[in-house]
Write a protein that binds this DNA or RNA. Structure first.
Length: 410
RNA sequence: GCCUGGGUGGGGUAGCUGGUUAUCCUAUGGGACUGUGGAUCCUACGACUCGGGUUCGAAUCCCGACCCGGGCCCCA
């Protein structure tokens, strides 16, 4: 084997592509029904777009290169930044809210593992222009609905960064993102040590640990007692009420955090079994990125589904397509082409291109699982009909083209 | 970047305490069979991941690289 695909990339053969397209179309269908429009952004962007969003630290995980004009280019590692860039560049004056969905490949230079590749696919959604609980709730409900359409059921965790941030507000801002990262990692030990080294007040420390440990029905009320009757609590309560209206099952989880400042309020993640260490299939939240990219400050909410991960666990399988094979003889090959062309208006039709003998053509039809075979021979042509052979029963009869079409449509 | 297991024809395998022409199954092309499929037989095709080392001799032992799996780190 002289050549092989680069590490962490994959080839998709027809059988798998068929399944991937099927699931993709399910997700697309849901997004479209909810009123979202598909967008597409470039495969590569200026690298600043991503360092601006995520810091210089991501450089080690990005595929980047200098183009012939000496520009620093990066293959997109995610799609939120490009979408917001697109918004700032050409859509700031469009009527709000903007509702978009996308499905595309992304690239990250990482160690491949189960559910983790260097080229991977994300299906995502963004609402731009609303900071209200209604948009947060809609986005979460849409995520769950999409997963459901793909036959995937996961655990939904919902949190709010405004609440956590309010609690650690008194702590120097230079420490806050580090705290958020430790919270997100569920690294209680590391968190405690860090809080000690920066001499965080004991009552804040205690409250923080209580907050991120909250769960169950009363979590919101207990959170209110911890941080007071702040705006974030009101917003979060409104969101949870709406999630109830959508009929969603969820778990309040203040342990979901992001170490980046532009995540402001709602955050959510969906986890699934059966994926090993990469058990998160969907992550999202509300954020304010537009200003960072030079636009007016604008609220957005969105999420991305790890498409490869749901492919790994989804149970849904497409119906196998019906296939017809047109079988001919040495002296009827040309007629067979014409007949195949007509049949292709109605059904997936195969035609021999190997110059095979009659018998081998039928054997081939069998190996590809054709449901029917049309035999085009002198006898049939003379009678002005076609021989339709059912590959399951072996039955065969002389029928007209119209009858063949009628039966296919049944 | 770190730890760990693994790489033999397209797929699945035997060999792996060094020594024939690297085994078998399957898949694929052609044929036996010139208007009727799944069978059978014949035939063709096709592999030791790569590079070093040890040795008279390496698929086999050693080292490194590459790739795959699992975990860590990271997770925008």
């Amino acid at each position: 084997m002289e050549l092989q695909k680069p590490r962490g990339t994959r080839d998709f053969l027809p059988e798998e592509m068929n399944k991937r397209r099927y699931i993709e179309n399910k997700l697309r269908g849901v997004a479209a029904h909810w009123g979202y429009g598909e967008i597409k952004t470039p495969t590569f962007e200026h690298i600043e777009l991503f360092t601006l969003k995520s810091g210089e630290g991501i450089l080690g995980e990005i595929y980047n290169f200098k183009d012939k004009g000496e520009r620093e280019i990066a293959l997109r590692p995610e799609l939120t930044a490009p979408v917001v860039r697109m918004y700032v560049e050409e859509l700031q004056r469009s009527p709000k809210p903007l509702k978009f969905f996308y499905f595309d490949n992304c690239f990250r230079y990482e160690r491949p593992q189960k559910g983790r590749f260097r080229e991977f696919f994300q299906f995502g959604v963004e609402i731009i222009g609303s900071s209200r609980p209604e948009s947060d709730a809609e986005v979460i409900a849409l995520a769950v609905e999409m997963l459901k359409s793909a036959g995937v059921r996961g655990d939904l965790h919902v949190g709010n960064l405004g609440i956590v941030r309010a609690l650690i507000n008194e702590i120097g801002s230079q420490h806050q993102s580090k705290i958020m990262r430790l919270v997100d990692k569920k690294d209680d030990k590391g968190l405690e040590e860090f809080l000690d080294t920066i001499h965080a007040p004991d009552d804040i420390k205690g409250k923080l640990f209580r907050l991120i440990g909250l769960h169950g029905e009363n979590a919101i009320h207990e959170a209110r007692e911890l941080v007071g009757d702040i705006d974030a609590i009101t917003q979060f309560k409104a969101l949870l009420d709406l999630l109830d209206v959508y009929g969603l099952e969820y778990q309040v989880d203040f342990g979901i955090a992001r170490g980046l400042d532009y995540y402001t309020g709602m955050v959510f993640e969906i986890y699934c079994e059966g994926l090993g260490a990469q058990n998160q299939v969907c992550g999202g939240g509300s954020y304010r990125l537009a200003a960072l990219f030079g636009g007016e400050d604008t609220a957005s909410t969105g999420y991305a589904i790890g498409f490869d991960r749901i492919m790994e666990i989804c149970e849904v399988n497409p119906e196998p397509a019906k296939r017809m094979v047109v079988v001919s003889f040495e002296d009827t090959r040309k007629e067979a082409i014409v007949i195949a062309m007509k049949l292709r208006e109605h059904i997936d039709t195969y035609l021999d291109v190997m110059g095979r003998k009659f018998k081998d053509q039928i054997a081939y039809a069998n190996t590809i699982g054709a449901s029917h075979v049309i035999i085009v021979g002198k006898n049939e042509l003379d009678a002005g009909k076609l021989a339709l052979k059912d590959m399951k029963t072996g039955d065969q009869e002389l029928v007209s083209m119209e009858e063949v079409v009628a039966r296919i449509n049944k």
